[in-house]
Design a protein around this nucleic acid. Structure first.
Length: 816
DNA sequence: TACAGTCGGGG
DNA sequence: GTGTACGACTGTA
């Protein structure tokens, strides 16, 4: 018997049980076999369970262990009697369960669809990438001692050998036509393989795999193109290709599919997954640009999900897995999650939906020295702080605490499953935030921590939606509504405190407030206020920053009203924040985004509203240079690529939009497009209008006029707050001389003598004080004991219920 | 003008 | 293998 000190790299069912892969500090990979007897639980009438036992003994294709036992039902909060069906051959588990459920459809099943890799780490008390002491003998695991915790922010990871595979040329989807040579980078060297030589190609890749034995294949389009195009000739020529480290496994393939998410259709491309080695396709990764590999590894450690899965699914899957883990550790039955596609008609509201978060109509225009206060991770914090969970809302097990507005009691005698899952996550995220603040910018750990922090953010963001999602295992709409009710209450509480300290509230948006007070424009001016809000709400609120200036934009359709979510501003440190405007949108070409942000950087040099106005001539000069480059054909085509998501099948388009034309072009070129796939195209002159990026050869001219339109629109968004509209821009930027004198020379605010200005400003109604009054929220009522709440957030006339203090939430029973 | 089609939001 | 909303906005016909 010997002991191996190593990180858990991979675990999956195999003929011999569970195959586990370990990587030690020297980077050596080693496989060990372990036992696992996964069990599902069945509940129902005794006679039926008896029949099931007989059936399993006589008909089950693999040996099973049957046992009557007790497990806890989450909603009953007490043990119930169930039949445990254990399957000592984990590879046969899923099939056996299927057959059972088909034969006995009326029984209730639990723990039936917890993925085996997660079940394995739960059973062993470990997690993916955990550093462990593994006792083993003859290739089998005897015992595993974890020397690592998923809640420790600073941890070591195994050294990983990476092999990168991609096609030569710009990044374009190769299955839509454009193909270069295969480039493989490993150990600091690059190897090129001409695309036509099938057999040579396979032999060459095989040689590199054997020589370097990488732990990780990072590809661009590996899932949908590279791996299948390597496996094809490998089969054809009979040359085995060891993409897997485990020679007994074939590469796993999952087909492409489209599904709905956030009310829009999403396309998930096919997948090719490896055994004993990871394949991560950066083009098929969820949020890869945001949290990257470091974030994916962190999510794998926290959720127990395999790294290859984490890299391809939404973080909602991760939160669900964490809730399952909490239930499993508590001995709580995990409901079998059936598909209910027909019952998906009504779904909980999204964060910004009108029934959900509190949304205010901001005071339109340019403001100076405004502070933005944000509750950090507000909804998850509310779930933890007020114990909101599917099984705690509306329970009669104890007196409970009534929910604001709604009045339904929430159990206080026991911590809910969702809060129990989220609390350590919030805590760890908080610790990363502190670490990031402490580290200097050149410390390499800073970026790693930032990515893990970002991964936590996305886990926390999805947990709220999950509570209201009918198909979620631990979802319940009442709990979801309780969260938004508390959210509104907390924001109103904060708003009252802010106003009580003499600040004016310019805007409120779900978890943030924009406030101003003459004279207050330094961080310390807000410390006492933040403390007061923290004390009153029990939630953490932070100062996002103080703006030199911030502009809330009016609606483009109805200029007299403001919209909640189109704004931009410059903080005291010169950094900028934008929401809703062109630079923020995914369909804006890079050239337009960079021009808008470049212009914003110039405007950000202005220290206040007057400073903003003084920088406008510089900004205009910058825009003119950019426009000059655009109109003389100097902008590289890849900076002009527009991305759209295909919302339907190409033949289903009714209107001949650019996207519809491009989809048609691709279809004619033999490319199969599915709903939810991204389209990339450039605007070209003439009747063609737009051409698919993948079908662009050489350097065709682009439609400078179309891009000029986009650019001027982006510029207009930034200058509208100082009364510059599109007509004035045309005159300044397109070079028609001296309408207002030199380009960028702003008319003075409210310059009555200038008839043309008034004409131009007619659309820019934010400058008119009369409209401002209408949009300004009513002052606090005289009778402050019972605040009247009017228009912007209506329906809040119900008497206020006190928020419980932390001391009031005590749990009689709390499990580790 | 009607309406088809696409986007954001969270930090 | 995980949210079938909603309002703003642009473009076509």
């Amino acid at each position: 018997m010997s002991t191996l000190y190593a990180w858990l790299f991979d675990a999956y069912p195999s003929e011999a049980g569970m195959t586990t892969w370990w990587i030690d500090a020297d980077g050596r990979a080693q496989a060990l076999t372990d036992d696992l007897t996964p069990a599902f639980y069945v509940q129902g009438p005794h006679a039926d369970l008896h029949a099931l036992c007989l059936w399993l003994r006589a008909r089950a294709p693999v040996p099973v262990s049957l046992q009557r036992t007790e497990r806890t039902d989450l909603f009953l909060d007490r043990p119930i009697e169930v039949l445990a069906v254990g399957v000592p051959r984990p590879a046969a588990f899923q099939r056996l369960f299927r057959q059972t459920a088909d034969a006995f459809p009326s029984l209730t099943y639990y723990d039936a669809d917890i993925p085996l890799p997660q079940r394995y780490v739960l059973t062993r008390g470990i997690f993916p990438l955990a550093y462990c002491a593994v006792e083993h003998q003859d290739g089998r695991v005897i015992e595993i001692q974890p020397l690592d915790s998923p809640w420790e922010p600073e941890y070591r990871l195994p050294p990983l050998r990476v092999m990168a595979l991609r096609l030569d040329g710009e990044l374009r989807d190769p299955s839509r036509g454009h193909r270069g040579d295969l480039l493989i980078e490993v150990d600091g060297r690059q190897h090129a393989f001409p695309r036509r030589h099938g057999r040579q190609l396979v032999l060459g890749v095989r040689h590199l795999l054997e020589q370097h034995d990488p732990d990780l294949l990072v590809t661009a389009f590996g899932d949908s193109f590279l791996l299948p195009r390597l496996l094809e000739p490998s089969q054809h020529y009979g040359v085995p290709l060891p993409l897997n480290r485990d020679p007994h496994q074939a590469v796993a393939h999952k087909a492409a599919h489209s599904y709905f998410s956030y009310g829009r259709i999403v396309f998930r491309n096919e997948q090719h997954l490896l055994f004993g080695r990871w394949h991560i396709d950066r083009q098929n990764a969820f949020l890869a640009d945001d949290y990257g590999l470091e974030g994916s590894l962190e999510i794998a450690r926290l959720t127990g999900m395999p790294v290859q899965t984490v890299a391809r699914v939404s973080t909602g899957t991760g939160i669900s897995a964490m809730q399952v883990a909490t239930a499993w550790r508590r001995g709580v039955l995990v409901p079998w999650q059936k598909r209910h596609p027909e019952s998906l008609k009504t779904v909980g509201d999204l964060l910004v939906a009108d029934k959900g978060g509190l949304v205010y109509t901001p005071i339109v225009g340019l403001h100076q020295h405004v502070a933005e206060l944000d509750f950090s991770a507000m909804y998850p914090s509310i779930m933890v702080r007020f114990n909101l969970s599917p099984e705690t809302v509306g329970r009669s097990c104890c007196e409970g605490t009534p929910i604001p507005e709604i009045g339904t009691p929430v159990c206080t005698h026991r911590q809910g499953l969702v809060p129990e899952t989220l609390a350590p996550l919030l805590e760890k995220r908080f610790r990363y935030k502190a670490l990031i603040r402490e580290l200097s910018d050149d410390d390499p750990r800073k970026e790693v921590y930032r990515r893990r922090y970002s991964a936590h953010k996305w886990l926390l963001v999805t947990c709220f939606g999950y509570l209201g999602y009918k198909n979620a295992r631990f979802g319940r709409i009442e709990a979801h509504e309780a969260v938004t009710a508390y959210g509104r209450e907390v924001l109103l509480r904060a708003k009252e405190l802010v106003e009580g300290r003499g600040f004016r509230v310019l805007h409120v948006y779900v978890d943030g407030l924009w406030i101003e007070k003459p004279g207050a424009h330094l961080r310390p001016d807000y410390d006492a206020l933040l403390d007061e809000i923290r004390r009153a709400t029990g939630l953490h609120i932070g100062l996002e920053g103080v703006y030199r200036w911030v502009a809330f934009l009016p609606s483009r359709v109805e200029p007299r009203i403001s919209v909640a979510n189109r704004y931009f501003g410059a903080f005291e440190d010169g950094s900028v924040k934008v929401r809703g405007i062109e630079a923020r949108r995914h369909d804006t070409p890079r050239f337009i985004r960079e021009t808008q942000l470049g212009m914003l950087d110039i405007l950000a040099e202005g220290r206040d509203v007057a400073g903003f106005r003084r920088t406008v001539p510089d900004a205009i000069r910058y825009v003119r240079r950019r426009l000059q480059a655009l109109r003389t054909g100097q902008v590289p085509l890849q900076d002009l690529v527009v991305t759209h998501r295909l919302a339907r099948a190409p033949q289903e388009f009714v209107v001949r939009t650019a996207a519809a034309r491009v989809a048609q072009q691709l279809s004619q070129a033999g490319v199969q497009l599915s709903p939810g796939e991204s389209l990339r195209f450039v605007y070209v002159p003439g009747p063609e209008k737009a051409r698919a990026w993948e079908l662009v050869e050489d350097h065709p001219p682009y439609d400078a006029q179309a891009y000029t339109e986009l650019l001027l629109r982006a510029v207009e968004s930034l200058l509208l707050p100082v009364g510059v509209d599109r007509r004035m821009l045309d005159l300044w930027v397109l070079g028609n001389a001296g309408y207002w004198g030199p380009p960028g020379a702003l008319p003075p605010p409210g310059a009555d003598g200038h008839a043309p200005l008034l004409a131009a400003a007619a659309r820019v109604s934010m400058l008119r004080p009369a409209l401002r009054t209408i949009l300004t929220p009513a002052p606090p009522p005289a009778d402050a004991t019972r605040p009247q709440r009017d228009a912007p957030w209506g329906r809040l006339q119900t008497p206020r219920l006190a928020l419980p203090t932390p001391d009031e939430i005590r749990y009689a029973a709390r499990e580790a």
